[in-house]
Design a protein around this nucleic acid. Structure first.
Lengths: 332, 332
DNA sequence: CTGTTAGCGCTTTCAC
DNA sequence: GTGAAAGCGCTAACAG
């Protein structure tokens, strides 16, 4: 464990001024080549790395982006974070990650902590709506990812359209009685209902099984679904659209435990197209993660660099339905 | 987007010196209560947050811990990171995360980047052995988590013992022909073989199916296993121990696709006891994540604070076998 | 108890 | 082209 080396030390060893070392490191073109070479040599030899903290203080930019996600149970968010970290690093930024666990108080604390670290910008998967207003007033740009919200720049797929996709697919397969599991005040449910409506199916054709908890812990999700299923002797629907893949997976397991077959008796379409659905052969609405991440970072960095007009930017990407085994069945 | 407020500004507004504001913020007990109240009031009013970058520079400690993981495909590492972040934050530290993707060059770049950010310490899931030597020479303390390595402080379960647990369990269930899927130069394989040896079973009783790639991408894992399976008309073993749960899961799927039953025809024990095994009912070696995380942070922070003798600390925790459906079957 | 001051490591005018 | 010097926001002696 050797001591950290500073620029001053490099300057001394290379027999130049600190200013010159700084110029060399920052690629200032008008430094004598010979000097530059001497400086680089010393830097290599002693393994010097610049102190980014001091740079941050001086330049008033940290090259740090705060990322707040609402949870990590859903592999979808993990993929998101993984790509964000990778892509941001390639753009010269580092990420500082917090998991708000669906807790608005924690979310706000985390954001305060980000501020403390002098982040240049912030990307959030909002944990509810509680903090949105004050998040909009932060001294740094913020982009909401995966959720379109009024007061913030955002990048997300069109959830309404996604819901329609699921509805249309079920209808084309001959289903006439439907279920939706998840939060009902969600665009994707509204889209689903709207998709049915377009085909003259009444809203009453869809049974909403609302889950109490917001967490996507498998065990809790399972309990939540089970509670609804216990009310049925026979299932009053032949297909289920779920808020996410975790719910879809647990739904399928519970259906099968009751001796019914997926997709023959009950078809299922999930949401997010995560590893879970890929592994388990579950049909799912695909979210283009890489595109969302690229778009989000572009937007955020443009904001950081002040290149955008103050109007809120709301980017909606196209959802697609990936059909796999769980809904690959035609009724009648 | 308002401008960031500094301590100087607070001092001006509260009509005190900057030093006093600093004292108030840092909870220095000998400040006049009335003054302190006045300062706090201003802080609240303008929503001031201290600039941790400046603190870092001055105090020469960043309260930042670098975390480098070898991959994120395995949910085990996700859980690890999630707990690390949570626990570290509660101890006053933030985490800066990098995914080395099993790439030693990337791993080293990431560590350099950590240094640049003035991390106080570093926690790594080593991506191979390539960088271990120079990692040991870093100017900050480093703890290896999940893997015991010679040159570094480490916290991990006893993989050798874990392998034995799996072997003993299979033997007790009446198995006499075994397979291991994963890297063969792994302690857990050695333990497995040793467990068989203890019961007078020859090393030849275990068939090693080595996977070429280190990544745990489901698709690649599946391909790797398939390649081995294609060589068999009938499986020359009745039970399989795998390096991790992803391999276990894909193994089970492939066995079932061949029309065989798990656990009746082939029993399977995985490793890590991740969500995957919990959801899918796969027997698995449990790793006590929370305990590992707590222990690791304790160790690292003690090192940071210089409270430990220079000797390398290698902590081995107890593995346990969680038996679920995939190995719950007695032969003959 | 409170204010003044120096300085953490770096960048960036401003002279030379 | 290169060096000297000021200052980013904060903490910690040191005076008073």
């Amino acid at each position: 464990m050797k001591k950290r080396i500073t620029m001053k030390e490099i300057a001394r060893l290379a027999n130049v001024s600190q200013a010159t070392v700084s110029r060399v490191i920052n690629g200032n073109p008008d430094v004598n080549e010979e000097l530059a070479a001497r400086v680089w040599k010393v830097i290599e030899e002693v393994g010097y790395v610049p102190n980014q903290t001091a740079q941050t203080l001086k330049r008033n930019q940290s090259k740090l982006i705060g990322v707040s996600v609402s949870e990590m149970y859903n592999p979808y968010f993990v993929e998101l974070v993984d790509h964000l970290e990778d892509k941001a690093r390639k753009l010269g930024y580092n990420i500082i990650l917090h998991n708000a666990k669906h807790n608005p108080i924690l979310e706000w604390e985390n954001i305060q902590n980000f501020l403390t670290r002098q982040i240049d910008g912030c990307i959030i998967v909002p944990a509810g709506r509680h903090n949105l207003e004050r998040i909009g007033k932060l001294p740094v740009p913020v982009v909401s990812i995966t959720q379109t919200v009024d007061a913030l720049d955002s990048v997300a797929i069109d959830h309404f359209k996604a819901g329609k996709l699921a509805a249309h697919s079920f209808i084309r397969s001959g289903h006439t009685s439907f279920a939706y599991i998840g939060k009902a005040d969600d665009e994707k449910y509204l889209g689903f209902a709207s998709g049915l409506y377009e085909h003259q199916l009444p809203v009453s054709a869809v049974r909403v099984l609302e889950l109490e908890q917001t967490s996507n812990d498998h065990f809790l999700v399972r309990q939540g679904i089970e509670k609804h299923f216990r009310e049925f002797d026979a299932f009053p629907f032949t297909c289920v659209f779920t808020e996410n893949d975790i719910i879809a997976l647990e739904c399928i397991r519970l259906v099968e435990e009751r001796g019914l077959k997926v997709p023959e008796d009950i078809s299922v379409i999930g949401f997010d197209d995560t590893l879970l659905s890929k592994i388990m052969g579950i049909s799912s609405i695909h979210q283009p993660i890489e595109e969302m991440v690229t778009t989000t970072l572009e937007l955020l960095i443009n904001r950081i660099e002040g290149k955008l007009s103050p109007d809120i930017v709301s980017i909606q990407l196209e959802p697609t339905l990936i059909t796999r085994r769980s809904s690959n069945h035609r009724r009648i």
